[in-house]
Amino acid sequence: MSIDPSSIPNFGGQPEEPEGSGPTGPILPDQDLVKQLLDQMELKYVVDDEGDLAAPWEEFRTYFMFRGEAEQQVFSVRTFYDRQHSIEDKPKLLEAIDDWNRRTLWPKVYSHTHDDGSVRLIGEAQMLIGTGVSLEHFVSSTVSWVRASIEFDKWLVEQFGLEKEIDSSEGEGDGEGS
């Protein structure tokens, strides 16, 4: 099966004319279908040592995983945000992600505290696919989840003034004043 390019949501651009139609019944998505979608979205990806598909960005990476068996199979889009936060910032961080989780559908974001005391965030969205899903629903959900993962990172940078940290670290050593 292949993805009809017109089925990829346009979100804000002019609607494209459909070029054809995909399957009319439910499909069982697989990694090859996700690879086709990522190719059409012009996103780079790799397959990790565990066989999961991952799309890397500068400050995070998004995994596309299939878990479970038969009718209970789940497709999960999980984003691991690489920016480390201190344990002292965790209460402020939890307050912010609680606000995000209340106001948005996805990704649902949670924290993970590492043994060294650093805190990182993880975003996740899931879909039960074991009994089949429509191709259009699968494509639009996956595209929306990827875009929302990117938007969460931008939102977090704005909430915590992290762009100032990024800007100041880029400007260090260049001989110009701030």
Rank of each mutant, 00 (worst) to 15 (best):
S76W: 06
M127C: 07
M127N: 03
S140L: 00
P107S: 00
K35H: 06
L43N: 09
V74M: 13
K108M: 08
M127Y: 06
G177F: 14
E163A: 13
L93E: 10
T142F: 03
I122W: 05
A55E: 13
F11D: 11
D153T: 05
F75D: 09
F138P: 08
H112N: 06
E158I: 04
I150P: 14
A125N: 04
D52Y: 07
G171P: 01
G25W: 03
L128K: 02
F75N: 05
E88I: 12
I129G: 01
I3H: 07
S144H: 15
A54N: 11
L37F: 02
L33K: 06
E16M: 07
S141D: 12
D115T: 07
A70W: 11
H137R: 05
Y63G: 05
D98L: 09
L53A: 06
G177D: 15
S134F: 10
D116W: 09
E151H: 14
G51H: 06
K44I: 03
T79Q: 04
Q14I: 14
K92N: 11
E165A: 07
P91K: 01
A148Y: 12
S76N: 09
G130L: 07
L128V: 06
Q159F: 04
N101R: 03
L53N: 11
M1F: 05
D153F: 00
E95L: 08
Y45D: 04
E71M: 01
S169L: 08
G13N: 14
Q84A: 13
V139E: 12
N101P: 04
